[in-house]
Write a protein that binds this DNA or RNA. Sequence first.
DNA 1: CAATCATACTAAACCGTCCAGTATTGTCAA
DNA 2: TTGACAATACTGGACGGTTTAGTATGATTG
Lengths: 227, 227
Amino acid sequence: MLTVSHFRTPTVNASNRPKSFALSPGDMTQKAGVILAGALEVFTTYGYTAASMDRIAAGAGVSKSTLYSYFHDKERLFVSLIQWLTQNTNQIIFGLRTDLDPETPPDQVLRQMANAVLAEFSANQSLLTLMRLMIGESERFPDLAKTFVRTVQKPLLDHLALYFASQPQFKSLDPAVSARIFAGSLVHYLIIQNILHGRDIVPLDPDRMIDGLIYTIMAAGQSSLEA
Amino acid sequence: MLTVSHFRTPTVNASNRPKSFALSPGDMTQKAGVILAGALEVFTTYGYTAASMDRIAAGAGVSKSTLYSYFHDKERLFVSLIQWLTQNTNQIIFGLRTDLDPETPPDQVLRQMANAVLAEFSANQSLLTLMRLMIGESERFPDLAKTFVRTVQKPLLDHLALYFASQPQFKSLDPAVSARIFAGSLVHYLIIQNILHGRDIVPLDPDRMIDGLIYTIMAAGQSSLEA
DNA sequence: CAATCATACTAAACCGTCCAGTATTGTCAA
DNA sequence: TTGACAATACTGGACGGTTTAGTATGATTG
């Protein structure tokens, strides 16, 4: 269970040293959300180091005092932000996971998933931002990167692998590898097109990408090729 | 043709304003290479902003004066470094591209390629570093990201697509999409395992990954599934 | 004599702290 | 219900100490 730690209530108590709490996201103050939203934009634009706390405060429309009353320091603000995004991402992903209904044909399920992923990632910029920040700062925050893998990537891959394993059509395929191929192709596509700004350089229609991917997996599953 | 621009000769002329040249990599002084190698390590460890010019100078074993005599400023040093890495990467990739011999069976060719990619990226840390830096700084240096796509990703994808198109075994597959699936699966695998430190969290043997990937593409190619 | 080194310097930015003052909100007595 | 008061949240600005990019100066080396 992920909790947003390094978060402190704005209660400036007598000692002027407010203590911090590990709060579940529901407990988070409205102001904290405003700060995180502003921080996201600034971190997105400048990266971790170049994003100054002054700019974050300005971006969030909050005084620096308030900023520091909610978050102890820059590093823990960043960690809280990533955890916040991670939770949002998780909710989104688990929201769009088409309940692996064994009735509907697998190609429809897969297409539905792929469509949802590409649509969601294209519409919701913060998901790609999370990916980019995580990769970019993975050396400075290795533990955070592992948390990201554990709470976002692993459940998704496990879910996919479970689905591939459950369908007899794919019994000749390695479920774990198929999950990697499915997710990896889409993630790589998103990285090239949206993060590295390669849309005009290596253009590829998302529908064409999805069609080809679905066809490849379906065809491989139904093949009687010997290993 | 890629040239290492933003590079200036160490000639500190009278006006103390040495002019810069666009030099082909062969013209690059030995010292410039030393500086770039040191810069790579520091940028890798600290990221762009947190890598100070003092640390870079120290890491390269060079005085700061010399540093600035070869590179106008930090930004152009970084651009030169990326271009330098891009060229190295290109040479490596084009070096390991198994000359698309139509004689050898496709599965062997693909396996050879996948093996070479994974082996090379695991052994040569700087390739992954390049990937990580490019993604992490893609908002600060969008043009650099495009250059990366144009000079590294696009040739690789084109090369793969051409190969898929040339082999009758894959005539039922979309060559461009197959190239994306092939490269994307491997890149995503490398990102998860090596960049995001997910080896222990979502373990997957590289050979198993390659086997599954090759099988999937081969089986899909030989399938007679109707679209 | 060109290249390099070592060092010191400037001007600016940064983080985190601190504080005087201002809204906002609630409590409680009259 | 109203008015006084207290607690809390927040602002805005200033500050110390540190770090940064980039420049300048003079010594050293081959």
